[in-house]
Design a binder for these strands. Structure first.
Lengths: 335, 335
DNA sequence: ATGAAAGCGCTAACAC
DNA sequence: GTGTTAGCGCTTTCAT
């Protein structure tokens, strides 16, 4: 920057202003500076700028995993929303491991993000303490915690499960099952488990048995999980009429496995998923699923962040439920 | 940090050492410092540390998109490899747009990464200039450029296309087509196009027509693309026996579309994809595809980075071809 | 509208 | 093994 200022024949302060707040500089001066910058190929050092201004321009985003289209959509929506404000996303992922989450959070905090976005609302005590002490806006997303740390933009996973159960019940099914991940071990998907609980609760409310609700395999759940889980479930409960999969990926895996086993969907078995993944539209029959607008979730989060970081008196914690909807396709039949 | 040093009764320098190079500090002192840190909930500020030490601990990673399992696998492998060395990945994505790539690169450079990992080797002139001037190790991955900027860890996309063509030809097919993205507009997948070219070249080498090679739709290619493209292709070239899809996602979309149109795979149409995505193992029939170990690519890149950043005399640019292999499953028949 | 001085929170380099 | 001094490249603040 010193080089630029010398070449342009102005002080370094003027260069700084010409870059970050051009309005404050005479057009002629601005021009000279721009030329010098181009000639030298100067790229400002935001590390130094961050230290001085005490604004890093970082937003921390904690995700369970990168390899999930919906979480990627959140990251995507967020990035879009923040791009023009010149914020950078600092992404960390936990692999559904709370010990790892804490480690990652510490690393993130060392970069002094101006806000922290956490996926989910279940944290280790140490992580919660870290978050509380961070003194920056916290947003918990993709969940609807009863005791949130800061702002909330999400949906109720419990309600997802209940909605799935109600839908299947309304179709006249009575022998209803579900497939999801296990709760044992360190690696677990709390939000998926919440969907399973909601499902079981609604089943019980309707006086139906929850015996065919199967927890099997570790997060992240994908096609293989669904294939293996449905095989187990049908062995254990051969008379099952309808199944909820906590993730569309599992649902699709289950569908393919059924195809191989000669179980016709939806004639012999109805299937409903969660997440509205693109693949669900493509398979045959198209998958009935529960949709949450994750892109919107990301964009909303970005807009909230911008508002929060714009005004000084940070508004009191907000709570937004982006809701959910059933996408009726053809994988569920009437009983 | 000042607070920590006072509480521990040592100088700030000792605190710094106790954190970043504990060996240099007496165990007793170390202990005192650790206690003070815990008591105060102190988290070091790496922004300040970076400025002072001139090491940011950032590695820049430029990806076409986040929403692709293989690129996500690269990011994953890289993160794993770098985690223990306390490096952070700074991820940017271009959405297959070279103008955007340049913008993103400038933003990345402002964070002073210690190395830059670029996916692909086709950059705008301005981006190339930026890269050349960056004065940090550059690694181009997932490609095998003839005129690389720095290190290369990748595979030949051209060879992928040739291999696909050869495989189909060896099976006795003569009326062979392909589906990939368009080359028009700003948004394009150069590496996918390279695979298409390799495919065409091999077809011509065998004296076969490349008329049924269809370029349609913009990157990123996914299920919908495959479904739409195969419908168009079969309309245009109804006698087509075998098709290469530049991405497994397109291949799966094509497969589902064929199912809907009553075209039996592989009896009436053979299909080979690229990328070995998980879904390809799950569909029925399982998809024959060309596999590249993207996870290994990420890990290799991480290891190379560590070596590069470890030693002072940075080794001369290396070139690694991770190769490729055909995964024979059941979507290709003999003619 | 521009400039000068001070300092952000750390660590490199050198001293003891 | 620990402390002192100086300074990383910017921006804040205040002056002109």
């Amino acid at each position: 920057m010193r080089d630029v200022s010398q070449l342009a024949g102005v002080s370094r302060m003027t260069v700084s202003r010409a870059i970050s707040d051009p309005e404050l500089v005479l057009p002629a001066t601005r021009e000279k500076v721009a030329k010098a910058i181009a000639a030298l190929g100067y790229v400002p050092d935001r590390t130094a700028g961050s230290l001085s201004s005490r604004k890093t321009g970082f937003i921390a985003l904690m995700l369970p995993t990168l390899t999930n289209a919906n979480f990627a959509a959140v990251a995507h929506g967020l990035t879009e929303a923040l791009r023009d404000a010149n914020f950078h996303l600092l992404i960390a992922y936990t692999e559904y491991d709370m010990v790892e989450e804490e480690r990652q959070l510490r690393n993130l905090l060392a970069r002094r993000p101006e806000a922290i976005v956490m996926t989910g609302a279940t944290h280790s005590p140490a992580a919660s303490k870290l978050l509380l002490a961070a003194d920056v806006p916290i947003i918990e997303i993709a969940d609807l915690p009863s005791r949130p740390i800061g702002h909330v933009i999400g949906f109720s996973n419990h309600e997802v499960g209940r909605t799935a159960a109600r839908y299947l019940i309304d179709k006249g099914h009575t022998r209803i099952g579900a497939i999801g991940g296990t709760v044992e071990g360190e690696v677990r998907d709390h939000r998926g488990e919440e969907r399973m609980r909601g499902f079981e609760d609604e089943l019980r409310l309707a006086g139906l048995s929850a015996d065919a609700v199967l927890r099997y395999g570790e997060a992240p759940l994908s096609y293989d999980h669904g294939a293996a889980a449905i095989a187990r479930l049908l062995k254990k409960s051969p008379d099952c009429q309808a199944v909820f999969a906590v993730s569309d990926l599992s649902a699709v895996g289950a569908m393919m496995q059924c195809q191989r086993m000669g179980v016709s969907i939806p004639d012999q078995l109805s299937l409903i998923g969660f997440g509205d993944f693109e693949i669900g539209r493509i398979v045959d029959p198209p998958l009935t699923t529960i949709h949450v607008d994750f892109n919107e979730l990301g964009r909303r989060t970005g807009a909230t962040l911008l508002a929060l970081l714009g005004e000084d008196g940070d508004a009191r914690p907000g709570r937004v439920d982006v809701g959910l909807s059933v996408v009726e396709r053809e994988s569920v039949s009437k009983a």
